[in-house]
Design a binder for these strands. Structure first.
Lengths: 212, 212
DNA sequence: TAAAATATGTGAAAGTATTCACAACGCTAT
DNA sequence: ATAGCGTTGTGAATACTTTCACATATTTTA
């Protein structure tokens, strides 16, 4: 299979959500045109994206909603559950524990870690907070596959180093800092301030932005 | 000025953060090579990005750290404060109220709205929660420029409609749903589940992803 | 003060991503 | 059956982004 671009994956996520809606609306089939309209894309883009993975449509008719949804779920790895650990249960961490979309898509938080004695041993949505000093050991024990990092920027790099050395190679980082990881580690950083910066750029430079 | 691409803006945000670090490390000047290394980019990319906005460097020497930082701040609209309102003070909303990067970059939350009577009138970090029924009126009164949306998916569209009709054209949405807005409105959606989907795709398809 | 070293700024080339445009195919109606 | 319509799947064309490569300018060294 040829390499798939970041933007295609992002759009697959969009299609997935749209297909869930279409399913609720009792659509049986959907055309690339309708799918494109709902996600503000072009029909050709939709068809091209899907064509990277196979031919799922029927000419003259469109794509079968249920089938396509399942197919995309399987491409995105949503047809199974993933063992997730959360490190840092401050403001952002607490929000993530309660984020209903995670379990809904198969991302199950199995462990929570913190370094604050007042938090360790406390219960968050049925999960006891572990001491971050046992991080490596417990990540292995629980076969954690994805770590979500919600610690202060200053602590992030050292936690990442330990996570990586414990064999977890997939990290979603909410700490507002650049992290160094080996090449075989997949790291995504979500920085909410950077999102706002796009908006302030747009406000400061009306018309100079390409798309948004 | 020619149109600037999304990716360039994103990288400007990265440069800005890196320059802040360099400033703390007492760097006086920095080369495109060093900047690129820290942000995992190429020197040519850095120079090209900056060249869209002017010539800030000195040949043989590099870029002046302080000056370049200020220049990028001004390009991104960070050399001033923005009046922000938060709608929805649930798990995600509460985290955002306490997010220290926001005020640090000039994004000042002036108002908080919710529809839950138990929350209205309560104090969050010194801000009283208003009734969302007064949304339009108070957005205007306080000259709010950016709205951050942290309401459930089901409520998001109707809040957006009201925000837009109140004249606010810049929205950061955390609700996991696709929103319809007029063309002149700048809407950015942050969907944390979609971020995890990139990771599960990467895990499920090791090697098939182009970059991450 | 001149030569060597360093690093920018930028056209041109290479590489990617998106859109076009249409042949191919399956449905629907008669 | 068959005509006509609708929609996919996909090479080719276009548009966009990144990288290359080098002329140009400045600093450093001796």
């Amino acid at each position: 299979m040829r390499k798939i671009s970041e933007s295609t994956i992002h759009r697959l996520s969009l299609y997935y959500r749209t297909l869930v809606s279409l399913q609720r609306e009792r659509y049986i089939t959907v055309s690339s045109r309708e799918l494109a309209k709902r996600d503000k894309l072009t029909p050709a883009q939709v068809r091209k994206d899907l064509s990277f993975f196979g031919s799922f449509g029927t000419r003259g008719l469109g794509y079968p909603v249920n089938e396509l949804k399942d197919k995309i779920a399987s491409i995105l790895g949503l047809n199974r559950t993933w063992n997730v650990a959360l490190v840092g249960v401050g403001n952002v961490g607490s929000a993530l524990v309660s984020y209903k979309e995670f379990p809904r898509q198969g991302f199950v938080i199995k462990k929570i870690f913190d370094n604050d004695q007042r938090k360790i041993g406390k219960n968050h949505k049925g999960i006891l907070v572990s001491d971050v000093r046992n991080l490596a050991k417990e990540l292995k024990e629980d076969r954690i596959e994805i770590v979500v990092l919600a610690v202060p920027a200053s602590a992030a790099q050292s936690v990442v180093d330990e996570v990586v050395s414990a064999g977890v190679h997939t990290i979603l980082n909410f700490a507002p800092t650049n992290l160094k990881v080996p090449d075989n580690v997949v790291l995504r950083t979500v920085n909410m301030a950077m999102e706002l910066e796009h908006l302030s750029f747009a406000l400061s430079n009306r018309g100079k932005i390409k798309e948004l």
